[in-house]
Design a protein around this nucleic acid. Structure first.
Lengths: 342, 342
DNA sequence: ATGAAAGCGCTAACAT
DNA sequence: ATGTTAGCGCTTTCAT
């Protein structure tokens, strides 16, 4: 491997000049720049990452803490992760993978060994144990998700409160009076995961505001569980005509279950999902949904982090606006013939 | 952050002694060792990763190339990834995430900048473009999957040929005469992904050996596609009584489709899956299956890689044995009343 | 069994 | 606009 010294000799300049040509941190005459660039190309020079990090106190590596906890939906996680890696590369950074089970220890370790410059933390709980650590650690960070107390931290997430509200507003606008929230697996609520709680919050508030009736239930991702949960919901509220689903893996089974129960979508039952657009469009009927823009959030997360590394002070909280797309799964509330016979 | 010099001063020894205590690369008197260890603990010393890498020519970081290509099943990928990270940590290594879309460039980059010591490459195609590069690059590597020409490379994977054989043997042993292989999305075959091709190979060979009739088809992961594919299969072969599935996301829909077509599992149709055990057990009926031991493969991959870094020459190819677990979805071939009426 | 000292390859003052 | 030089914090000879 060629070193910066080799390049300098080849170009007939000082090593520092090569460094400055590469970093652009001071002005270089066009001729010198060209000569150096030619030598770099000729030798196939690539700076040694460790040497650079040691001298500059910057590793150009971000840590990504990926949780793999019970009830999490993996494909969505991976969309975030991919977006983070892709965006990081655009800013000349690489991404180190930290699993959540190494937990707080892992964060401390990578910080103290100066392995990474900053960290992206996913799957934030309302009372996340990593939050105090992050505040103490002097490691620039961005949380994808909001803890209850976000003081001093930079966070970004979809506006889940608004997402739920949009769903309820949409259903209420279509005349639905009794609707349900089919949520994440219960483990997710028990961990007090931010997005699930905030969705529930928004659902409650909107239902109250519209003066309509709202039921909430978690749901495990298995066909049987979906069946049981839907039946339970219909037992509690036979006149249920609308469903908001925040649980990607059960979407398919849910539609099957409704079919097998003889409830047509959207004629008898309107279904709204909070899920990735491609998932919504892959269903039959195509689901009206509020999208989870993982790509956009991951990208913005990296941009916020980079701006912190550049010494800027980005906004502490970024709520990505929720957008509802009406498709084929939601329609006017049915006239409740059923109510007279039930 | 404390440096090795701080620790040395605190313990009253030379920096090199601290280094040797930490690395165990030369013998140290028990007293010195203790004193140094105490100072390390007292100061909370953690070696600077860049300095260490620069001096030792070892970054203690592995790269993991994760593909996110069309048709891939994400949760399985993540199981591999998690196993790799967890195992790497056990050998005091971290893992850098490389997405496949950076492709060969990414491998070259991390190698030339000495960012990583070695690389784990997933989702190998029969004629993988990264294979010649890997051979040229002088970067220790392990492939999870076998290219057609694995000369000079270290590979590991489940024995998919055997996995398919086991499934066919099982069905043939139960008297099934006409069976189908419901495979991955066609994009996966078109890319000539190793595991999909090898499964097909094994299926063909076993079917021929048993002198029974075998149908093969790819299948896209959407309810409608599953329905269409199954109907097509039954049209071609009305007396089909056994199905081997290598396509995790369609397992749920497949069972629904069979139900809606009035085919009971396993009375009318035996279903065998090649998938993770928990997926097989999460279905109703529980699926007879050949497990994909992602955990084990990921772990072994890292161990092989570490042994290479230690200068050993591990076996070039490791085929993890396929194991079939019979559960509730497979049974004796039905007496074909249907054949007389069809 | 331990110390001293020379780098590893780069960046960033500090020159001029 | 460019060169000189002093580190960054560690590992590893080379000494003893």
């Amino acid at each position: 491997m060629a070193t910066i010294g080799d390049v300098a000799r080849h170009a007939g300049v000082a090593a520092s000049t090569v460094s400055y040509v590469l970093s652009g941190k001071r002005s270089i005459s066009p001729e010198t720049r060209q000569r150096v660039q030619a030598s770099v190309d000729a030798l196939g020079y690539r700076p040694n990452a460790s040497a650079r990090a040691l001298a500059s106190h910057r590793s150009n590596v971000l840590a990504l803490v990926i949780p793999l906890r019970a009830g999490m939906h993996v494909p969505v996680m991976m969309q975030f992760a991919t977006a983070v890696v892709t965006s990081a590369r655009r800013y000349d950074h690489d991404v180190l993978l930290l699993t959540a089970d190494e937990g707080a220890t892992g964060l401390e370790r990578v910080q103290q060994s100066a392995l990474v410059d900053a960290v992206v933390v996913m799957d934030i709980e309302l009372h996340d144990e990593r939050v105090p650590l992050l505040r103490a650690l002097d490691l620039p960070s961005i949380l994808i998700g909001f803890p209850l107390d976000a003081e001093g931290l930079t966070c970004i997430d979809l506006d889940f409160v608004r997402a739920a509200e949009l769903c309820v507003d949409h259903l209420a606008g279509l005349g639905h009076q009794r609707i349900g929230l089919l949520g994440t697996p219960s483990a997710v609520y028990e961990r007090q995961t931010g997005f699930a709680h905030r969705t529930r919050e928004g659902f409650r508030a909107a239902v109250a505001r519209h003066g309509i009736h709202g039921l909430e239930t978690p749901c495990e991702p298995a066909h049987e569980a979906v069946m049981a949960t839907v039946e339970q919901l219909l037992r509690e509220e036979p006149e249920l005509t609308g469903l908001v689903v925040q649980n990607e893996p059960i979407i398919g089974p849910l539609l099957d279950v409704l079919r097998s129960l003889g409830r047509r979508v959207p004629e008898d039952m309107s279904v709204l999902a909070i899920c990735a657009d491609d998932v919504a469009e892959g269903q039959r009927p195509r689901l009206s949904s509020v999208a989870i823009p993982a790509e956009e959030i991951g990208q913005q997360a990296v941009e916020l982090l980079i701006s912190k590394l550049d010494g800027l002070a980005p906004p502490a909280g970024t709520l990505v606006p929720a957008v509802l797309t009406a498709r084929a799964s939601s329609g006017p509330a049915p006239q409740l013939d059923r109510s007279t016979t039930a």
